[in-house]
């Protein structure tokens, strides 16, 4: 299935958000959103659909 992770198109075998994150190697402390909607860590077993846009954001410097 083709999805977009942090703006980059990716081909993944996984069918869930948790599986896709693991497959593309996103680890550590981060938060996720799918198609602009926040998905809490406890809800990452949700199924993804073709073309879904996944954002995985990590702590960063800020003012």
């Amino acid at each position: 299935m083709r999805i977009i992770v942090n703006g980059t198109p990716r081909e993944v075998v996984a069918t869930t958000l948790a599986g896709a994150l693991e497959e593309v190697g996103i680890v550590g402390r981060f938060a996720t959103a799918v198609n602009g909607v926040f998905v809490p860590a406890a809800g990452r077993e949700i199924a993804l659909s073709e073309g879904d846009a996944v954002e995985a954001l990590a702590p960063m410097q800020g003012g």
């Binding site: 702590p59 960063m60 800020g62 003012g63």
Partner: peptide, 19 residues
């Protein structure tokens, strides 16, 4: 300390430890 969130491009986890 103010902080933000960005797409992980390396460094996010180190920054978390730092703050």
């Amino acid at each position: 300390a103010t902080v933000s969130l960005r797409r992980e491009a390396g460094g996010g986890q180190d920054f978390w430890a730092l703050v």
